[in-house]
Design a protein around this nucleic acid. Structure first.
Length: 857
DNA sequence: CAGTGAGCGAGCTTCCGCTTGACTT
């Protein structure tokens, strides 16, 4: 038995460290926190100094028992969790959960995983810092109090199963308020003047220093230009430089992967985790831009080797982010000489990004020369300005340039032809282009993370989960939205003639942006009205200050919590008692048929329309709003058409088919049986043919299932004196042998399964691949999207296809999947020809209805 | 599984931060 047990947070880290510490050490992982407040109740004894009631987290019982056993056998237990608030608490909880005696425990910390760092840590152990632990307890208790007292208020006053919290509610607020800003934004237009001047064989493009609000003024200016003399008034050149961006943190990695690779934040984290587990990169959840000395020297060596010593500049970055705890290094390649790695496309692309960003961060500045040429106009007070920029030395730009969020492409500045002051120029062409002011940009997942980080809200480990929580609660949706066609004036002066033209451009197209839902807006309004102090953008920063004081021993944690809780709880009670239920109700108008009022509002199950008043004798009628409709913008006609269900979609086998929406989505009812519609079928206009197709398809699959199940359980024979039995259970087919079960691959032809093959499953030679379907299509159950060890792939029958193209796996339609298979050249032609034709036809009808409703609005 | 939305009331929902691997019938 080992004399020394080292406990770290992550198993990958445990593996690496074990190599550095000889045979006397065994290194294990706690998998993060092992104890927490029970989820069932608030689990805080409020009356008794806010004493937390911890339990071993259900999914950690096994881990804790194993660690307990190992700790008992060891002489010394080294607690090596991260050097931050949460890490300190993990160590403390381990002491409690494992029943460790103080004299047997040593607390060590290191923030880089190198032999020297670890040896140094082992030589300098300390004891647990209880103040830091208390700061964590205060954080934990405060979050629980806020979350578990605020959420029930929403259940009573808005809708059941909603949630509120210090982090998520502020994230929602940001999105709701941005949408309000956009709604209140008034677009104005102006005329931007650009002149093209001839200089010997070259041209200079220059913008006028003034923009005109009125069209007449722009035309007047162009008219003046006909007679004007243009003289170079000034040529100014000055050197400039650009510096590389610091290495990646979780937040900046998410932003760049979103901008450069189009990854949602969750995908970035999954791929980064895979790279980490393969040993290609350092830890991916970090707020630090720091690089270890080892990393610095490796990077320096690599830059020198690839680009020469002129390109080397060793840089130490320091973290300025609010509330950063810096328990880890920045995200970087573990070995810089791995310029490329083995892996799937996503892994390669993300790794490439990390490699370039880190290498560039250790390279010299780019040296530029900026030139400004000012051109005077003799009959006007304004002047033209041409801006040029040339790169004298590329430096880090050889490798990597950070993108930014602005959608306008950087105006291309290049080399300007040599000109002298006083030189006269000929105006070749001049244009006045009508441009429009832009409303503030909607948040993407990544730009929301950036904003949260700026406000010091949330942590690297929670950015991606927070974004998914607010979508799961249906406070916000991530959507693409079509833009509008907009007209603009283009006035051109050429050959002394002015020509006016009206052009069109597409504007306002949104890709993967976050939009608030009705529920999101209503909940936000309610929370801001009643709990402003918690929804305040500075709330986290303020309590963080107090947590820091607790960590320094200057403040007692239960007293801080008590100060917070008294007024907070009072507000909760007051709101429960005094506040009305909020419904976000809007009176749309009157139903022309019945003369009754039509309302839209939030019901127990989301946004809905209502015909008739609740107080009236006759019961009102209700209908849920469709996806994409909102209380704010729905029209009376659209609301009325919601009551078209249930409707009879046609006749099949002499019986009516009724289409309606139930608790589990839209369905067809036929011969008192139910058939679900797919996501792509619109219950309001699904055709008779399509309904019949769905019914027939269900019958076929049901029949196949019944046929198959008649043959099972089936005894295949004996192996090692025990029966080998194949059965079909809840989780798919499996083989029972000697009281053990072995799952069978879904691709396995069950009827053809032989005893020999079954034995291979028992011996583990054949295994059920982890088939988790990301997406299935009920139109064609043969086609599935599965998630493999390295990303998603399409499975059609027994064949697998790699996903190509730009779309995310979960956004692929059946038609997309079939196209990918067809393009790969090995697709079965029969099944694919039929299905995509139908989906394509359906799509076009859907698109056209969407357009007409858009017009109505 | 297959219309809940009023109102009654049982019993359910919920937070933020650390970390990954389950393994059934």
């Amino acid at each position: 038995m080992s004399k020394n047990l080292v406990i770290v947070e992550s198993p990958a880290k445990a593996k690496t460290i074990e190599k550095f510490l000889g045979e006397d050490f065994i290194v294990k992982s706690s998998f993060g926190h092992v104890r927490d407040l029970s989820k069932k109740t608030i689990s805080i004894d409020i009356e008794n100094n806010f004493t937390p009631q911890y339990e071993i987290s259900p999914d950690k019982v096994k881990t804790v028992n194993e660690l307990k056993k190992l700790a008992k056998a060891a002489n010394i237990v080294w607690l090596a969790s991260d050097e931050d608030r949460e890490g300190e608490a993990i160590s403390w909880h381990l002491m409690e959960a494992l029943d460790l005696k103080e004299e047997k425990v040593k607390r060590i910390v290191f923030n880089e995983i190198t032999k020297t760092a670890i040896t140094h840590a082992v030589e300098n152990p300390r004891t647990i810092d209880i103040n830091l632990v208390n700061a964590q307890q205060a954080r934990r208790v405060l979050d629980r109090l806020v979350g578990y007292e605020l959420s029930p208020v929403l259940w009573k006053k808005v809708k059941p199963a909603l949630s509120a919290g210090r982090v998520q509610s502020v994230a929602v607020r940001l999105i709701v308020e941005r949408e309000e800003e956009i709604r209140n934004f008034t677009t104005t237009s102006f005329y931007k003047i650009v002149g093209i001047f001839d200089v010997k064989t070259a041209t200079i493009s220059a913008e006028l220093s003034k923009r005109f609000e009125k069209k007449e003024d722009a035309i007047r200016f162009l008219n003046d230009c006909i007679k004007a003399i243009f003289t170079i008034a000034d040529v100014e050149t000055k050197p400039a430089k650009k510096s590389p961006a610091p290495p990646f943190t979780t937040s900046t990695l998410q932003q760049e992967a979103s901008r450069k690779l189009g990854f949602p934040v969750a995908k970035t984290m999954v791929v980064a985790q895979q790279l980490y587990e393969s040993g290609f990169i350092t830890y991916m959840r970090t707020d630090s831009v720091n690089l270890s000395n080892l990393a610095l020297s490796m990077a320096k060596e690599e830059v020198e080797k690839l680009y020469g010593s002129d390109y080397v500049k060793v840089r130490k970055y320091t973290t300025k982010t609010k509330g950063a705890q810096e328990a880890h290094e920045a995200i970087r390649p573990t070995y810089f000489n791995n310029q490329n790695i083995n892996g799937d496309a996503s892994q390669k692309r993300l790794y490439d990004l990390i490699w370039k960003r880190t290498i560039a961060s250790q390279m010299s500045d780019a040296l530029l020369e900026k030139t400004n040429i000012t051109i005077d106009i003799d009959n006007r007070s304004e002047n033209f300005v041409a801006k040029g920029e040339i790169i004298k030395f590329d430096g880090f730009l050889k490798v990597y340039l950070e993108s930014n969020d602005d959608e306008d492409e950087e105006n291309q500045k290049g080399l300007l032809p040599p000109v002298k002051k006083g030189e006269k120029l000929v105006l070749n062409e001049c244009t006045a282009t009508q441009s429009f002011t832009q409303h503030p940009a909607r948040y993407t997942e990544a730009s929301l993370v950036k904003k949260l980080e700026e406000l010091g809200i949330g942590r690297p480990s929670t950015y991606a989960p927070t974004i998914s929580t607010i979508q799961k609660r249906e406070y916000v949706v991530k959507e693409d939205r079509d833009g509008l066609i907009r007209k603009f004036d283009l006035i051109t002066l050429k050959n002394n003639k002015i020509n006016e033209a009206e052009k069109t451009e597409k504007t306002g197209f949104e890709k993967a942006k976050l939009f608030p839902t009705d529920i999101g807006s209503v909940v936000n309004k309610f929370l801001v009205q009643n709990f402003e102090s918690i929804l305040n953008y500075n709330f986290t920063a303020e309590v963080e200050k107090e947590f820091d004081e607790i960590a320094e021993g200057a403040l007692v944690w239960n007293e801080m919590i008590s100060e917070f809780y008294k007024p907070f709880h009072e507000t909760v009670e007051k709101t429960l008692k005094e506040s009305e239920r909020v419904k976000g109700e809007r009176l749309l108008g009157v139903d022309p048929k019945t003369n009754k009022n039509i309302y839209v509002k939030i019901g127990r199950f989301g946004a809905m329309a209502q015909i008739g008043d609740t107080q009236s004798e006759e019961k009102p009628k209700f209908a849920g709003l469709k996806k994409g409709q909102s209380i704010d913008s729905i029209t009376l006609d659209d609301a009325l058409s919601l009551f078209d269900l249930p409707r009879i979609s046609g006749i099949f086998e002499e019986l009516e088919m009724t289409v309606a929406i139930g608790r589990f989505g839209p369905y067809i009812r036929h011969d008192s049986k139910f058939y679900s519609l797919t996501k792509n079928d619109d219950p309001y206009d699904v055709s008779e043919e399509r309904c019949i197709e769905i019914i027939k398809a269900k019958r076929i699959t049901d029949f196949a299932k019944n046929e198959l199940s008649q043959h099972f359980p089936k005894n295949l024979g004996e192996y090692e004196k025990n029966d080998v039995v194949v059965s079909i259970g809840k989780f798919g087919p499996y083989i029972t042998h000697n009281k053990s079960n072995f799952p069978v691959a879904k691709s396995q032809d069950l009827l053809a399964l032989t005893l020999e093959e079954a034995i291979e499953y028992i011996q583990g030679k054949k295994k059920k691949t982890s088939e988790k379907a990301l997406k299935e299509f009920s139109e064609n159950p043969e086609v599935k999207i599965l998630s493999g060890r390295y990303g998603a792939y399409i499975k059609i029958g027994k064949d697998n296809y790699k996903i190509t193209g730009e779309k995310e796996a979960k956004d692929l339609t059946l038609a997309d999947c079939l196209n990918i298979a067809l393009e790969s050249g090995k697709a079965p032609k029969k099944t694919s020809r039929k299905a995509p034709a139908k989906t394509a036809a359906k799509k076009t009808t859907k698109a056209s209805t969407a357009k007409t409703t858009a017009k109505k609005k």
